[in-house]
Design a protein around this nucleic acid. Structure first.
Lengths: 241, 241
DNA sequence: TAGATTGTTAATCGATTAACAATC
DNA sequence: TAGATTGTTAATCGATTAACAATC
């Protein structure tokens, strides 16, 4: 079985680079904030600053979508919100199921940012019979036995996996078999999926480890750059017990 | 104020590319699983498969760390676990504070993967006085008023922000002022930090939007590639109300 | 017109990958 | 030795960025 599109290199969809796609939500968030403040137009410089990127990159990104700006003026905020929303597919409704209603699943179910941007929690699913029927974020938890029915009747194509690592692959396979083609995986597991299924992974532990790497380097710089170095000639490499 | 090292391009730390650093935790996880099964050695092909990358990339990645393999044989699992752990700075203990003990903060506090890999939850901090003293994951929640004291006495350099978006920047500033130099941000906010502070962001909403983009494309492909396209000559561009 | 700002070009940089010589 | 597999090279590809012509 192939590993699908998991962390694949830029498949240029309609010519839009993957790196650009990943930044569109950042721009959209910044634009939404401007829209709420009724700001009519914004320059690439201002918007880039709000989104935390540089302006050349932003203009390049927007150039893949089309020419939505006005030279000498900037971008119309409302128009750009609409164009990016459409490009991201947020002008339609995406029913989402969350599988695994522990603390994390409950946190996601309660997350307000969900509903605001085209996503709708269609169902909460858990394997624990004691959870069945319990209300979380105003939605009754359903048993995993009904997973296939829920996916089919709800027309769900996006699944969020917040189960323990050991259950993730099996849940993934059932979701995919039932018709889900996009998966957001919070379990610390590499999921194997068929071709055509997208998997994105969110992994707390990995993020912390990347931070630790840089943290260690900062400490090493202060000390004179010796920490974390490989022992050289005549030095003893200390092995774990 | 500068935007620090947030999402910065590969600052090659001791010559290790950022993309490689981001994959080291994946290799480490796969190696740990092999170690638990008492597998003595592994080839680049096998390990790459377990980590979900290709073997050329894995060998290239490892070449930045040193020559830890044996031609014709493969890699010693235990030795490689140790080398990668050391490189990532996981041979030392990292006290971490979590600020914002809602569902998400509680989920992270309860997350087992924390402790297992050099990270230790040093404190849980919340702004709600009603939370103060409550036990979460066996740790008493402390009030945000004591944030600075907690950071100082605990020698904390890594902070996790799981507050609502509105509070994130302020919490970030207090963490940084107290000495935290690495931040993992779960709030849907672009944090502004001084030079030398690392920020990594985990954003559910952004991940879902990226999935929606690809999901829309898949639907468009089935329909003949017309969805999400810009209206051409003679077609009406529909604007939002 | 003068000033401002976009959209695009071209250079640069970093990441990926196949291929294979080195070597266990 | 023969077979296996690493470590490295070099080609390719994608992403970033500065600079500026186009143009509002």
């Amino acid at each position: 079985m192939a590993t699908g599109r998991q962390h694949r290199p830029a498949t240029r969809s309609r010519g839009i680079p993957e790196a650009t796609v990943a930044r569109l939500p950042l721009y959209l968030r910044a634009l939404t904030a401007l829209s709420e403040r009724s700001v009519p137009t914004v320059s690439s410089e201002e918007l880039a600053s709000a989104a935390g990127v540089n302006s050349a990159k932003l203009r390049k990104d927007f150039s893949y979508l089309g020419s939505y700006g006005t030279r000498g003026v900037g971008y119309d905020v409302e128009y750009l919100v609409y164009q990016i929303s459409r490009e991201l597919g947020l002008t339609q409704d995406w029913p989402v199921v969350i599988v695994g209603i522990g603390n994390l699943g409950a946190a996601l179910a309660n997350y307000g940012g969900f509903a605001s941007r085209g996503f709708r929690v269609a169902a909460l699913i858990d394997a624990d019979p004691a959870m069945t029927g319990k209300q979380v974020a105003g939605i009754a938890v359903q048993h995993v036995d009904d997973l296939e029915t829920i996916i089919h009747t709800g027309g769900v194509s996006i699944g969020v996996i917040t189960t323990p690592g050991g259950a993730a692959q099996q849940v993934c396979e059932r979701l995919v078999a039932a018709g889900v083609t996009s998966i957001l995986n919070f379990a610390p597991t590499v999921l194997t999926v068929p071709e055509g299924v997208d998997v994105r992974k969110v992994d707390l532990s990995i993020e912390l480890q990347i931070l630790a790497f840089h943290e260690q380097r900062k400490a090493a710089e202060e000390m004179g750059g010796q920490v974390g170095r490989e022992p050289g000639d005549g030095e003893q490499a200390v092995m774990p017990a």
